[in-house]
Amino acid sequence: MKIKFHHMILALLIATTGCKKDNYDAPSLKLTGKLVYKGEAIGVEYNQVPYELYQPGFGKVGPISQTFSQDGAYSSLLFKGNYKFTIPPNQGPFMWKEIAAGKRDSIAVALTGDQTMDIEVTPFYMIRNANLTAASGKVNATFSIEKVITDANAKDIERVSLYINKTQFVSGGDNIAVTDLAGSAITSLSNITMSANIPGISPTQNYVFARVGVKIAGVEDMIFSPLVKLTY
């Protein structure tokens, strides 16, 4: 009987230990911020530009992978600890520092509580002074484009697009109307005008959302002007 009783105690201890091991608290510390260039937010396409967080020495080899919102914001729930933040190759309408050929640089994050950390990048272009209005069944846009990278890494503009949508998600994949302007047709980056017709919307609404995007040659992701809601 003693042997059986000892076996029961041992089994109970193993089961209790196993439950404690499995029942970790969920991550609760927030790491938030946004993509910026000299403090100015960078707009991208929703859920298309990824970032990665690594926790060295924690036994997890792969990254924690998530994506930026269309206003360039990000938010991750994490455990307390040290992390490395990076953006994978060929992602985003900007350059990310490399410490060697093909080896991406990373930002060290020591997380002890909720933390805000903006991610400074160097975009190929920035959209400046975007003014979008709605009148007479159209969305009209005037803006300038600044070429930020001008060295050997510089790239041409493939096209500029004015997107309209009935919801706040606005991009090449989310729109009800778009007008494109080829990069070769742009004669001056300092004064660009575009317009797009507002189509019929069902159910009817008296507003749309709009923004301008720049497609860079050889770069998958576009950079966007701030989102605006236009009543008409």
Rank of each mutant, 00 (worst) to 15 (best):
I87W: 01
L35W: 06
E52N: 13
I192S: 03
G81K: 04
T116Q: 14
N131H: 10
I14E: 04
L13T: 14
E98H: 02
L77M: 13
E158K: 13
A210M: 07
L35P: 03
L53E: 13
D71Q: 10
K30R: 10
E220F: 09
G173R: 06
F169R: 12
G33R: 02
T32Y: 06
T67E: 11
N131R: 12
G62E: 14
I198K: 01
N165E: 09
R104K: 14
V44G: 04
P56I: 00
V121E: 09
K20M: 15
E98T: 14
T86A: 12
N47C: 09
A101W: 02
N129C: 07
L189D: 00
Y54S: 04
C19K: 13
G172F: 00
M117R: 15
I176E: 08
N206R: 12
A154G: 10
G173W: 00
G43T: 08
S144K: 09
Y232D: 00
Y46K: 13
V208K: 05
S76Y: 00
Q205K: 14
T167L: 03
L162M: 07
R211G: 06
G72C: 06
I3D: 14
M194W: 07
I192R: 01
N47P: 04
P56W: 01
T116A: 13
N90I: 02
Y54G: 02
A130M: 07
L13S: 12
I176V: 12
I176T: 08
A154I: 01
L230H: 08
H6N: 15
Q48E: 15
S75Y: 01
S136I: 03
L111Y: 04
A154S: 14
T204W: 09
Q55C: 12
A196Q: 06
I64L: 14
I119V: 15
V178F: 04
M222V: 08
V178A: 07
R211N: 10
K155I: 01
Y83D: 05
L181N: 04
F79Y: 15
Q48R: 12
A73I: 00
G173V: 00
Q115Y: 15
M126P: 00
D114E: 12
V44E: 01
I14L: 15
A101Y: 10
Y37K: 07
N90R: 11
S161Y: 00
I157H: 07
W96M: 10
Q168P: 03
I164E: 02
D25M: 11
F224D: 01
I119M: 10
D118M: 08
G92S: 06
P88Q: 06
T32I: 06
D71T: 06
K103G: 03
S188P: 03
K80G: 07
A15G: 05
S76T: 11
A152H: 11
V109H: 05
V219Q: 01
V212C: 08
V214T: 01
V121F: 04
N197V: 15
L29H: 04
A11R: 14
C19L: 13
V148Y: 00
T17W: 12
T142V: 13
G59P: 08
A177V: 08
T167A: 06
I99W: 09
T231K: 09
Y24C: 12
V160Q: 03
S136Q: 11
D22L: 14
S190Q: 15
M126A: 07
D118G: 09
V109Y: 09
F124M: 01
F85D: 06
K138Q: 13
P27M: 05
P50R: 04
T193F: 11
D25T: 11
L13A: 13
Y207T: 06
